[in-house]
Design a binder for these strands. Structure first.
Lengths: 392, 392
DNA sequence: TCAGTTTGTCCACATGTTAGACAAAGTTAA
DNA sequence: TTAACTTTGTCTAACATGTGGACAAACTGA
């Protein structure tokens, strides 16, 4: 039933504690580790020597003295293994080879012109194989593959529905595991981005953070107590389909007045066409509208502000429900930031129940953060480090 | 910084594991505890003997043999200590003395005609003193006081705002601690009810549960991963103030189109008056309307269904956001269940994103559950059992 | 040059879990 | 009635691990 506690667990936990300390404060001396963790100096010495044997830690030259013997600095051996993390978007694959700190070694970008799963899958395999070739020799090699997808993923790594790819019931985790035979993690793109931003986007990571991915649809990744929350089956965060306008516009989900019918890229483009904001021979896109806004096209700016108003309503709702520390807006519509940021902040400040608004921060991210990739890499790394503990 | 792991911690954790096993499966033999927990028989024996010394466990007579020596059955000593839990409502105090399993020993109910804090506080103190007198002698005596309040409570037990009591910035935890000198826990009433229902309302407690308290206002208690989620400052769950109708009715919170302006007791009564559903000399109340509905008053039933429709919209939003296993509707409007339950289930099933609705269950609770009291008792008990671990 | 400081290792010791022996107390079947 | 088997609970020796403190090595600063 429950897990019992014995001396082996104690050792594993302490070893993990030492390793985490070294990861977070690398480079660091044994003495400092002992001081920070509260463990005995002798204990730290013995655990560190095992970590060195296992290639997780290396010794570098002596550090600066602080009035006594010079310390031997310990480094986390970030290249003891590598992960491959992918961001599968609509029309593209972004992929990266990362080390065990999540730092990106090599990047690949590929445009996709087909959406059929079988085709896309071979591209995915190709990209991964490419990155494996670029991978330096290391003690542990490839320790995991993480892939973020724009759709609903259950706890078994199965994609139940990815509307913009027109995929249904695809067991991607299985399929990739069969090919590469390493742990594979499949997660919703917004969830991964949320986790990635929490881990890498702040000096001190926020405890409770919501990441709104506002693209063609709207998804939300929730990091509560520094942990990704995904609900009973993994479907939590379907923010695009909360009702903001009773008896509002029909949504393909079968409901009416859904948030994403008012505040998404899709809503933006629909309105732009309806209002004739583009001439006949232009191809409609967010970037095109942004160009016009930059050229001070008042009607476009007005449209941006209207969409921003709806986004602000959604954010206010989230603040009232979750009392979060941080909200991040990502994906395509984060580009509207210059025209809507101030309005949103003002709206939330005025309309969220008083106390919250004093602490919550609303920011915009940019695609260059590679939040999804970094999040997926984090998942893979954490799974690897946990698996180590369980085996030894 | 982090907590280190040594043999003392191991012992504490194992002791807690043994105690929890005994609590959950009382009566149980030492041998069975060893089998269930995976601990060695000898370890269990030694830990149990300490638990007996500390009065947490008692031995009862021999149990039935299963083909060998008859086991000595161990019982959780539920009366080793007691808690007092209160539900402070608008116009009443409900209070109970409970044992360490949360079972109610004695109940008190008191109507309040005043709302001024000083007055109410003396009543609270009186009720607690009454219950203390009714408390049997026990090794640990009163181990904690828990009090659920209809307002916004921060992590320090301070009531920042209780609109229906007209209280602001009241440090209730401090005040009670000063009088009784035992641990005091103050929590929002919906949060407590959520926890109480999770702990005591099901055969197997749901992992992810939302409790909607629909009274004059609407609050939500969230139990995620069997833990109460309260957000950064403790203000999470302000569901009454999420926007469901863009540019809708003004709310006292400063926002417009808030959920509680359409789906609460307040909204119900307002509409009933507006539609002239009561004669001049009747005093308006939910119970009065229910009587009329029971007498088949069609307009009242129609009004109930309209309110139910809004409740369904709110629930659908919650299902889409949280992917919960269970939703419970409590407080005054749960009484409308006979007229709205089916409609709500149907609406949620039709409008929540497909996959969720297949698993989520929406139920109504009744005040007789004493959910808030039981939740507050749980908090107090858990705090007590934790404090034991830390000291020894 | 020497006293003081810091780092890291080593060893005896305390603590707690485990495995297994064992006795007590019961059941079952001939 | 008896003998073989089962179950329970205690006890002991063996083992693993963390702790505290001694100690040597390496360095600083006056």
């Amino acid at each position: 039933m429950s897990r019992t506690w014995n001396q082996y667990i104690v050792k594993q936990e302490n070893k993990a504690l030492v390793l985490n300390t070294i990861i977070e404060e690398t480079p660091i001396s044994r003495a400092k580790v002992a001081q920070v963790t509260g463990l005995n100096k002798g204990t730290v010495s013995s655990l560190v020597s095992e970590l060195i044997d296992n290639h997780f830690v290396t010794e570098s030259g002596p550090g600066a003295s602080s009035g006594g013997r010079r310390p031997v600095m310990l480094l986390f051996n970030q290249t003891a293994g590598f992960t491959i993390a992918l961001d599968l978007g609509v029309g593209y694959i972004d992929a990266a080879l990362t080390d065990l700190t999540g730092s990106i070694i090599t990047k690949k970008h590929m445009k996709l012109h087909e959406r059929q799963f079988n085709k896309v899958f071979t591209y995915i395999v190709d990209v991964i194989n490419n990155l494996i070739e670029a991978m330096p020799k290391s003690p542990y090699g490839l320790v995991g593959i993480g892939i973020g997808v724009p759709g609903v993923v259950n706890h078994n790594g199965e994609i139940l529905l990815a509307p913009n790819l027109n995929w249904k019931n695809i067991h991607l985790e299985h399929a990739l595991h069969d090919v590469f035979n390493v742990p594979v993690i499949v997660e919703n793109e917004a969830n991964a981005a949320a986790y990635g931003e929490m881990r890498f986007g702040f000096k001190t990571p926020p405890e409770h953070m919501l990441y709104l991915s506002i693209g063609m649809g709207i998804g939300m990744g929730m990091v509560l107590d520094k942990t990704l929350y995904t609900g009973l089956n993994g479907f939590a965060g379907e923010m695009g389909h909360i009702t903001v306008v009773k008896d509002g516009i029909n949504c393909r989900c079968g409901n009416t007045g859904c948030f994403e019918r008012y505040a998404s890229e899709q809503a933006l483009l629909e309105q732009a066409i309806k209002r004739g904001l583009v001439s006949g021979n232009e191809e409609m896109s967010v970037d095109l509208l942004i160009e016009k806004a930059q050229a001070n096209h008042q009607e476009v700016i007005q449209l941006f502000k209207e969409i921003g108003q709806y986004i602000a309503i959604g954010i206010t709702t989230m603040v009232n429900l979750f009392n979060p520390e941080q909200i991040l807006i990502g994906n395509q519509l984060s580009k509207l930031s210059p025209w809507i940021k101030e309005d949103i902040n003002y709206y939330v400040f005025r309309h969220a129940i008083g106390f919250h608004s004093k602490r919550v921060t609303v920011d915009f991210t940019s695609p260059e953060h590679l939040s999804t990739i970094k999040g997926m890499a984090s998942f893979a790394i954490e799974k690897f480090l946990l698996s180590i503990k369980e085996v030894e």
